[in-house]
Design a protein around this nucleic acid. Structure first.
Lengths: 120, 120, 120, 120
DNA sequence: GTGGTCTAGACCACG
DNA sequence: GTGGTCTAGACCACG
């Protein structure tokens, strides 16, 4: 899986990587149990500090998306918590996005079409 | 309109205020042409510095949501730009949220139900 | 001559009026010697404070564009100073505008075409 | 690049800095990708508050002229948006300047000569 | 070390 | 009275 960093983005690098890995897991590009690159390898590949990748992995681990063992490094969890809930933070974000879209004249149908596209 | 600040949030105060005002305009709680509280009044009400509120108003102004004049203070714009487009940043956020929701076992229908609720 | 105020503009009202009168004189819409509306009449017409119009007239007077006498009120000067020079402030502004236009990919010809259009 | 502040100017300090940086980028004195001084360094050099410089950088960032990251500070963007358009505000300013110049007896050729000089 | 945020307090032009 | 600007100083996340 290729990680791409947008240097112009306001989103911190460690969070950009985290988001792309989460989306990779969701889309199936990263399979349950699949090995992630080592911190060192990914840092080298992207051209950033190992500390930054390490931060990403720790975050993903604390969120329950990956697990690490000493032998095999980081791997995608096979059983990701299915709370069936959207987090409060994400609900708030969603509401903000919908409000901004609506004010820009975007129809509800257009937003739903995007959901359709992203929910793979 | 009541502005509520979550002091533990990662979102900066000026941005929390901005988001709530944008959502207020979208929901109709804030009507086109309606007067916003003065910088000083809002700062006093929330218990924060006037500079912070001022930053919010300048942001909202630069985004075309409100305008200010020195006599009347800040007011909601009557004609907000209708690009008909969702910004790229919001699309990326939406995609992230959908991915996370899907991984948590949230159905597409549930997300669409939220869109329905927020798109007032 | 019709004065139009843009309430969304960052330019102070008194300056907006001043600019439109100067452009009116330059375009010939306001002839040398022509009577301007009284402070009170113009304020009423635009729907603003008389103080603001008064400020405009004092500025125009100090700049040598108009003169006032007790009998006839304000009139356009017949002999406006022909220094043959662009003010330093206007040169700086012109340079800024040209720089911004150039960075936006506007050609020199396009700018000159605008000069042509505005130099009536 | 040397930034010079005119403390007697009506133009706010943060805007004077902004204008000089934009003109520096346009003239090529500041190259794409080039590092800008840090907020602290520039504030110290000019003898103003860091907040003021910070405001300038945020403005330039929101306008798409520069970008910032926490590691390297601020840098000139390599791909500045080429709308190919002069903004409405700049057109209005240009029109005002042309009118004033014309009234001062400046010929159209003289103005075009200045455009020629500034469009580097 | 870097920019980003925030405070407390001040002065200013506009209207 | 209003927003706009600026200072001096502080703390923070990111990397």
């Amino acid at each position: 899986m290729v990680i791409k960093i947008d240097e112009y983005s306001d989103i911190p690098i460690y969070m950009q990587i985290r988001n792309q890995i989460v989306m990779g897991i969701s889309s199936g590009e990263l399979k349950p149990g699949e090995q992630l690159p080592t911190v060192r390898a990914l840092a080298l590949e992207i051209g950033i500090n190992t500390m930054t990748v390490s931060k990403t992995y720790q975050l993903l681990k604390s969120e329950g998306y990956i697990f690490t063992d000493r032998k095999n490094g980081a791997r995608v969890r096979t059983e990701i918590d299915k709370s069936g809930q959207i987090t409060e933070a994400n609900k708030a974000e969603l509401r903000r996005i919908v409000s901004e879209a609506r004010l820009s004249g975007v129809s509800k149908q257009d937003i739903i079409r995007l959901i359709d596209e992203y929910y793979v």
